[in-house]
Simulated scan of single mutants.
Amino acid sequence: MQLYNTLSAKEREALIEEAGKDRLTISFYKYAHIGNPQILRNHLFLAWNDMVVLGRIYVAHEGINAQLSVPAENFGIFKEHLDSISFLENVRLNIAIEQDNKSFLKLKVKVRKKIVADGLNDDTFDVTNKGVHVGAEQFNELIEDENTVLVDMRNHYESEIGHFKNAITPDVDTFRDSLDIIEQNLAEHKEDKKLVMYCTGGIRCEKASAYYKHKGFKNVYQLEGGIIEYTRQVREKNLENKFLGKNFVFDHRRGERISDEVIAHCHQCGKPCDTHVNCANEACHLLFIQCEECAQEMNNCCSVECKEVHALPYEEQKRLRKGKGASNKIFKKGRSPVLKYKK
């Protein structure tokens, strides 16, 4: 019984190209009480591997968080399988605005302590006492209200390339960092303001809304389905789009264009740009924003040092990496001092 990947990303990429068939990039989440996450993990892997589903899925006692690439021709049986699992029946599926057949190249289903690393002790508050979910139309009305405080629950590198106008965008590296900062900054408005939150697909706001209600905020709202669902509704209902720039996504695309505005800058030369890349030096792999001109000049690297390493024969690069852990810069998301125009 095969419970893990047997193909490399390159082998899978070749098979996708050879098949020449469309795939759908989908995400969903669901908070639920799961008695044995490992059993569910194995069940999902076996079923989805047969459907040639690829992606990154986290399963925990508190629920499931999934980002997937599904062959378009298999979407029907994939949905039937989801509906056969009681707590996932009719779960909302966020379908990507921009499709890419290679958004994911492996199927990774992992058991985690939590489906989002929030650093919270869930036993201290009622996680089911959530804020009010609102669709795109009501969201647009709320954020124009002078009594509303709009908060982006994502990290700095996400909001840097795109966010709603007039949103508070905390300068944080992780979701858990933002929770206390937002509470402290908005402490005086717990009763007189409407706290409206949004994130990529809704999962971060789901827990945060319950947390903030526990902390004394009286009027808490969250954007249903996040930026992904908002964009779908705006286009379907011909509503005014109040999102500026790109929506950062956690797959090989790294971003979806929502509006024509480019609100970020190349971290190396400062010109308008909102294209995230990873440094080509595998010992670095830093996530940063790089324009086409700098990519060419720097050979897709973040620094001269990395450019020099990347130019070495591959075996020499492997020798230099041998015995060393992953660079901490991987987790800095554009914070590296080598970037002159970082946020």
Rank of each mutant, 00 (worst) to 15 (best):
P37M: 03
V59Q: 00
L105N: 05
L82V: 01
P71Y: 08
V70N: 07
A32D: 14
L44Q: 08
L44K: 00
I77Y: 07
E146L: 10
A66P: 00
H61K: 15
A136I: 14
I39K: 14
I64Y: 02
D126W: 00
K113A: 10
V127H: 04
N129L: 04
K10I: 13
R41E: 10
T128H: 11
R23S: 10
N129A: 13
H61E: 15
F28K: 00
D122L: 12
K106Q: 14
V52I: 07
N65W: 00
Y31V: 01
I143Q: 07
G55Q: 12
K113M: 06
R41Q: 15
N49H: 15
A72F: 06
G63F: 00
F125A: 12
S8M: 04
V109M: 08
P37F: 00
L68V: 03
F78Q: 01
R112I: 03
G20C: 09
T25H: 09
H61M: 07
A47R: 13
E89Q: 12
K102W: 02
T124N: 07
E146T: 08
S84L: 09
K130C: 10
D123S: 13
I39E: 15
K130N: 08
E146I: 09
G119H: 02
E141V: 10
V70L: 07
G20K: 12
E17K: 10
E80A: 13
A14P: 01
